[in-house]
Each structure stands twice: as structure tokens, then as C-alpha cells.
């Protein structure tokens, strides 16, 4: 039985993952912005077999509450050993190009608020000498592309931060897992035309559970994205700048 905190618990990937945790009988502390949706997700997890489910409503940008929420989770679950970060927004790239305000908002939510929470959690897990931090980043952070480089910047910086954190926490026995999903059919991507590479949130959820169980550090989900991104990263910049990706 794990004691799991999920931040962004009403997102599609979080919901699919919470179901799998619940079916395994884990204890869950769910955090999200909208109380009504949060309660619906909590009830579902409870029926599916979670040993206990508690919730808190939080705005991720409100970093003054971050320490308190983590404390509250540890109290409700009688300890904390796993944390899943599953929130984020997909900013409108062209709006960001026209406005620094939009760009800053995208980076604050997708990068800075996560770093704030990670800072508190890292210290807590370091002193307890164990724990597992799972953060959903993105393949978009592997290389800057004209179509979504603001989102890519946030995710790329997040990936780098996690890499450093992993290195730091290794000797304390704390694990840091960077999850890089490819195309996932969720409300965040509702307006996209779906092709063969698209997968369901549950496919990502299965990959996340496998990563937790297997000791992985950086996982691409599904696995083939590792090779797609290898190729994309290998294209020389002189050529890449001409592509419309």
C-alpha cells in the first residue's frame, strides 16, 4: 500500500493513473482546482478500492499554500511516499508570440509552480530518506520547435531541473521519474486531429505504474517516442531551422 499525493488530480492522465492506484488499494490525496470535479474523481477512486481518499482544492500558482498542502497530505495519509505531478496547460503559441504576459503565465504554471512544490518535497523526502517523485514533462521539451516552443521551454527546463534533482537525491534513496508522453487524447488536446500515434490516457497511466515499479528514471510513453525524439534531436540545427515542425 502506497501513500500517494496527486497534484492535478482531475486531468485525464491523473484520473487514469488514480484508478490504477485505487484498484491496487493505495491511499490517495488528490489536489485540483475545481472542487466538484475533484470530488467526482475522489468518489470514483474510493469505489474502485483505494484504502482512503482525501482531497484539497488548490490553485497551483498560489505558492504560499504549497508547504501547507504537502503537510496536509502527509497527515491525511499518515506519511507520504509517492507524488505525481499531472497538471499543466497547453498555451496558445501564437498568443504567446504576441504577448509576453501570456508567455510568462505559461511558464509560471508549467514550470515555476512545479519547481516551488518540488523544492518543498525534495527536502522532505531527502530527510525521510525515501520517496518517489513522478513528474509529467513532455517530448515537446526535447527540442524547440516553432509550433510550440513556449510550452517546450517550460517542459524542457522542467526536464533539466528534474535531472539535477535526481542526481542530488540519488544518495538519499529518493527517486525522481521524468515522464515524457507523446500525443495523448485528452481534453488538453481536444482540438487536434488524431492520427496513429495518439494513445489513450490509460496507456500513459500503465506506463507510469510500470516506471514506478521498475526503477526507471526517464520514460517516454509510449516507448517509441524515445526513438522518434532521438531522430529529431539528431537533425543538425542548420537543417532543423528550415523545417516547419
Amino acid at each position: 500500500m502506497r501513500k500517494i499525493l496527486i497534484i492535478g488530480a482531475t486531468s485525464a492522465i491523473a484520473r487514469a493513473t488514480a484508478r490504477r492506484f485505487a484498484a491496487a488499494g493505495d491511499r490517495l490525496f488528490l489536489v485540483a482546482r475545481q472542487a466538484e470535479r475533484l470530488q467526482a474523481v475522489a468518489d470514483d477512486a474510493s469505489v474502485r478500492g483505494a484504502e482512503c481518499v482525501a482531497t484539497a482544492v488548490m490553485e497551483a500558482l498560489d505558492d504560499s499554500r504549497h508547504a501547507q498542502i504537502i503537510e496536509q497530505a502527509a497527515e491525511a495519509l499518515d506519511g507520504l511516499d509517492t507524488v505525481l505531478f499531472a497538471y499543466g496547460t497547453l498555451p496558445d503559441q501564437s498568443a504567446c508570440e504576441a504577448s509576453f504576459e501570456q508567455t510568462r503565465a505559461a511558464i509560471e504554471i508549467n514550470l515555476l509552480s512545479v519547481i516551488s512544490l518540488l523544492t518543498i518535497l525534495a527536502n522532505r523526502f531527502e530527510s525521510q530518506g525515501r520517496g518517489c517523485i513522478v513528474v509529467i514533462s513532455s517530448v515537446a521539451g526535447d527540442r524547440g520547435r516553432q509550433s510550440n516552443y513556449v510550452y517546450g521551454t517550460a517542459k524542457g527546463a522542467l526536464t533539466l531541473f528534474l535531472q539535477g534533482l535526481r542526481n542530488r537525491l540519488h544518495r538519499s534513496g529518493v527517486r525522481v521519474i521524468t515522464v515524457k508522453p507523446g500525443f495523448v487524447d485528452t481534453p488538453m488536446t481536444a482540438s487536434f486531429k488524431k492520427g496513429l500515434l495518439w494513445v489513450s490516457p490509460d496507456t500513459i497511466a500503465r506506463g507510469i505504474l510500470n516506471a514506478i515499479d521498475s526503477g526507471a528514471t526517464v520514460v517516454y510513453l509510449p516507448w517509441f517516442w524515445r526513438y522518434i525524439m532521438l531522430i529529431i534531436k539528431a537533425i543538425p540545427e542548420s537543417l532543423f531551422r528550415r523545417l516547419s515542425l
Binding site: 467526482a40 474523481v41 468518489d43 470514483d44 469505489v47 474502485r48
Partner: peptide, 11 residues
């Protein structure tokens, strides 16, 4: 499409 309404509420 009502398939997204796929949550249990109470049992």
C-alpha cells in the same frame, strides 16, 4: 458523446 461520464459514485 456521454462516454467520458465513466466514474463510479458509490457502491
Amino acid at each position: 458523446d456521454a462516454r467520458p461520464l465513466d466514474r463510479f459514485i458509490a457502491f
